[in-house]
Amino acid sequence: MNIFRLAGDMTHLASVLVLLLKIHTIKSCAGVSLKTQELYVIVFATRYLDIFTSFVSIYNSLMKLIFLGSSFSIVWYMRYHKAVHRTYDREQDTFRHWFLMLPCILLALLIHEKFTFFEVMWTFSLYLEAVAILPQLVLLQRTRNIDNLTGQYIFLLGGYRGFYILNWIYRYFTEPHYVHWITWISGLVQTLLYADFFYYYFLSWKNNKKLQLPA
């Protein structure tokens, strides 16, 4: 494990903790897209199908359990916890799951490294993760008033993707045969989706102003 990979995992973990903090202690999910969170549940559930069959390290297994557990609990809170559910922007969060999932299923069936059940599901999870943030970004555009925790959540999530790209570059130059086009391209697409958000995040940070996206 290199420093970029570790930094990526830690920012990912931090993003989840920030979101749980907002939901658990402030009892609010205002500005958070349930559609995106449900897509993340599907992403982790399809990617970590091998959690009981292949062992890499205690660290890996533990992180997999954390990401599965936290994404399930965030969705549970937003759907079933009365106080949290009341703060959910249901009317604004209208993105259709299938609109994103169907192309990813088709793409995974067409473009994969091996045509096996686990491999296609794993590839599907990569494609879906790349676009899972879209409902969240659309919701931000619509509500426009973004509180600090929601802004930090998306910033950390984008940071996680950025560090993973550095990790891939590092591994490409240090490990023989480390070439994974599917992972890289879907990872790059995912990171580019954050570019616009990052631009306005830094702008508001530089001017010391509240984050606001243009209409």
């Binding site: 990979r5 990912h12 890499v56 993973y164 990790n167 591994r171 490990e175 480390y178 994974h180 992972t183």
Partner: peptide, 10 residues
């Protein structure tokens, strides 16, 4: 192994 190296990421 080419196939396995990407599965050690999260």
């Amino acid at each position: 192994c080419v196939q396995e190296s990407q599965k050690d990421e999260l």
